[in-house]
Design a protein around this nucleic acid. Structure first.
Lengths: 240, 240
DNA sequence: ACAAAAGTGTTTTTTATACACCCATGC
DNA sequence: GCATGGGTGTATAAAAAACACTTTTGT
């Protein structure tokens, strides 16, 4: 940033934050995104990413957290900045002739625990989880932002332990495998190889507890050990 | 983004773009960053990342390109968005009591070809390449932005063919190896394994030409074949 | 007893790592 | 002819991939 003695006029910005909030419903095999139905023009009645304008004294991340807190009751989540979309003419409210305000959107990516994230239904049918496979047309350039978020989701799952931010405290290896399968598709990996690879790495601690789900042998419950994971930070491809 | 009927006041933003511009000087084994000496308060006489405020009708990326064009004459480069820094109080010009304008900085990451990037010296000693190993104190939060850019540089080099945006049209495998060595340090890999791995992948085309540098056997000149690289997009760890 | 789900082991193929060695040139 | 940098090959270790098989439960 620098002070300017330039001739050309500077753009005036309204800065907003838009969230791509994913949730993995392991029981029902669904990857979900949280969408809000718009009640005003432009794009009235279109679905959109939940967003807000940034307030005085509020950091961008605090703004993203506020959006989450207003829409869902969630305790366990992963949140990080995604990308900033700020080209001219991305919002029809900008007057194309008079060069009025520009709308800049800093997008954030979030992954929340599904079982643990009750919707705050202020207005019925206005806030809803949508399956990624079956999305309505989105307002503004939100589909582009969402695509960006989906790419980030897959990258993060490959390289970072964000799955454990969103799984219960204890979980079975089948749960973990299931989570990865939802995002990366069937046969993204052989289950038994997935097992032995992860267990050999040593950051999944067997709690000794077992859980029985209907028929079949009871599954061991594991716990993520953040300390034991530390050496794998910045190392490529631990999970897949 | 949504229209608001909220009680709290919104922040007003000035939006700037700051560039982390890297250059790899293979001949002299140096990784360089372009810095600008500030001539005004605050942080007068501190070095800073080159930046600008966004103009009317100008996209963020166009803004980043304009910074580059104003500082250096360069034809070959890689450019992408890095991160957005927008918390309150990151610029001392913000009045902490009155909640005046906030300074939001969208940072961009660039890698340029060193031999090909003459500095536009408008004001002597105000624009200069600095060795990453030996940096002065930077203005604002620019050291943090730079750290972010350095991380991105290493990531990109590992996973993407950005080295070829910045190498000459034809180059030797020693040049390529040298480039990676500057960023990842001595013995980041065995040279002969690096050779055979990359050649086996098949996206480096032998031009048949040779080059002699002083004593020793002449080296083959290779060319990057973008089409042959396509299958490796999104595949992890092609280069290291 | 048998289906279902969890968990183990084995075999084969591929890739990584560490070197030793040969080749072509300038001086 | 020998130092210098370029280039090839090989032997070993490690990891990935495929898949057969055993264990423990509910019904």
């Amino acid at each position: 940033m620098k002070n300017l003695s330039e001739s050309k006029k500077l753009a005036d910005f309204k800065v907003g934050v838009d969230n791509v909030i994913f949730s993995l419903d392991i029981r029902q095999n669904r990857l979900l995104v949280l969408l809000i139905k718009r009640t005003e023009k432009p794009f009235e009645n279109y679905w959109s990413l939940p967003g807000t304008l940034v307030r005085e004294g509020e950091s961008l991340e605090a703004s993203a957290e506020r959006i989450l807190a207003e829409k869902i009751l969630v305790n366990n989540l992963y949140l990080e900045q995604l990308y900033t979309f700020g080209g001219p003419h991305r919002d029809p409210r900008e007057d194309p002739t008079s060069y009025g305000d520009r709308y800049l959107s800093v997008s954030y990516f979030a992954l929340v625990r599904f079982e643990d994230s009750g919707l705050i239904i202020r207005d019925l049918n206005q806030t809803a989880w949508h399956e990624l496979q079956n999305l309505p047309a989105l307002a503004f350039d939100h589909q582009e932002i969402l695509n960006y978020g989906y790419r980030r989701l897959r990258n993060k799952l490959e390289y970072s332990p964000i799955a454990f931010d969103v799984l219960p405290e204890v979980f079975t290896l089948a749960d973990l495998f299931q989570l990865y399968t939802i995002v990366f598709g069937e046969n993204f990996s052989d289950y038994s190889n997935f097992r032995s690879r992860l267990l050999k790495l040593g950051f999944l601690k067997d709690t000794g507890l077992k859980i029985t789900k209907g028929a079949g042998r009871p599954a061991s419950l594991y716990q993520f050990d953040a300390k034991a994971f530390a050496p794998f930070k910045d190392k490529p491809l631990v999970f897949i």
